[in-house]
Write a protein that binds this DNA or RNA. Structure first.
Lengths: 224, 224
DNA sequence: TAATTTTATTAGTCTTGACTAATTTTTTAA
DNA sequence: TTAAAAAATTAGTCAAGACTAATAAAATTA
């Protein structure tokens, strides 16, 4: 491929992604050491790669002044995040993977390159807004839905919210969710909170009232 | 990962795959030069890699005596072929890719590693027997359906066959197929062949009779 | 069978992206 | 504000997997 090609190696993509995640969606400067820790790499290796990414105009970086993404780098980082999250939805919804398994496979799938792939997958999945961890999926143009992600126990009485993910991924919690017929996108109305122990009375999909514990409500991610 | 791990690099996997394909499903010995040509690599690079694969007990290889897969190498090669063909089916059937686009993306997807992935994808796709080019998909245990792949023009009069792929992948041919409502798995009965120009009278899905040209019939892959 | 051509192999080099060790710069604390 | 600690950088090394050039072995043909 031509040297001025826009394509990145897996390693470069992982650096861009981590700079995005660590740096407040790529807007704030971060240190080489932070990157090294996040990637489980040596700081010296990181400095080498940063130079390469500067050459490619994907990051801004001055010695001992920290790193942040350029507009070009941001675009690529968002595409990788998009691919990652779309694949997570695919694995969970279509291939019956569980919440805690999807990340590891998506780490590989996010590096598959093909101009049509992300958009076709997006369409196939019905243009999901959030991934299984409740994080928003960037659109093809790099826009993201606002996050109002919170936990069920913080929702106001009478409000209806939608499940976007879980904090606890233990199989006992996931099985309990299954039993209650709660999945991604399930609508839950918070009827009232019991002051005594923080238990929460809810209705699931406008069905009958159910009571769940505070521990439960602390581990269910929702947005309004 | 532990050095005695069973996992292969992408490059190693590509070598195993090519040794499988060139060597009569991996059973016959092939030369380093043949591999070099197929991978668009230098023969010297091939010899290096062959040594590595011998160390890993994935191939049999003696100097100037040719290469073939060991049982262990065969197992891995079949898994890669399985993954490749399953992803091709996915891309064609679920993501609306066309016959000629699927291969390139599947070349990347076949290298995604996860113990559950191939089997879950297989299940999701309904355990397809053939990929979009009419080639059989190895089962989880490495078995493959028999191939009786042929072209429509060679089917005997009166026989019913099933479309498994195309030879020509030009968009004009693919569009014509779409117009005739012919896709993978479509049942076609060969009514008669016209001696004059080799045109073929068929019924599609037991519908009305249609006549197609010899050129058409030479490019449609079917099996009985 | 000897000469020629083709194929295979070895030796040495290059790039990528890691690493360690040594050094310099920056930050923090005395 | 200087000493110590932490962070960043440089220099040099390594493994993987490609390459070229040179050589050896095998196959072909005169």
């Amino acid at each position: 491929m031509h040297p001025s090609s826009h394509s990145q190696t897996n390693s470069e993509e992982n650096y861009l992604k981590i700079i995005y995640h660590l740096g407040n969606e790529g807007k704030t400067k971060i240190s080489p050491t932070a990157i090294a820790e996040a990637l489980n790499n040596n700081p010296a290796s990181v400095v080498d790669m940063l130079k390469k990414l500067v050459d490619k105009k994907l990051i801004q970086y001055e010695k001992s002044k920290g790193v942040k993404l350029t507009a070009k780098g941001m675009k690529i980082a968002l595409l990788i995040v998009r691919r990652h999250r779309l694949w997570e939805v695919f694995l969970l919804e279509k291939l019956e993977y569980s919440w805690d398994e999807v990340h590891e496979v998506a780490e590989q799938l996010e590096h598959i390159h093909h101009p049509l792939l992300a958009d076709r997958l997006d369409k196939f999945l019905g243009f999901p807004q959030y991934d299984p961890h409740g994080d928003p999926i960037p659109s093809a143009s790099g826009e993201m839905a606002d996050i109002h992600k919170t936990i069920l126990s913080e929702v106001a009485d009478g409000k209806t919210c939608q499940v976007v993910g879980v904090k606890d991924t233990s199989s006992s919690f996931l099985q309990y969710l299954k039993k209650l017929d709660i999945g991604i996108g399930t609508k839950i109305t918070l009827v009232e909170k019991i002051p005594f122990d923080g238990s929460v009375v809810i209705t699931i999909k406008n069905g009958a009232k159910t009571t769940v514990s505070k521990i439960f409500a602390d581990n269910l991610l929702v947005h309004d």
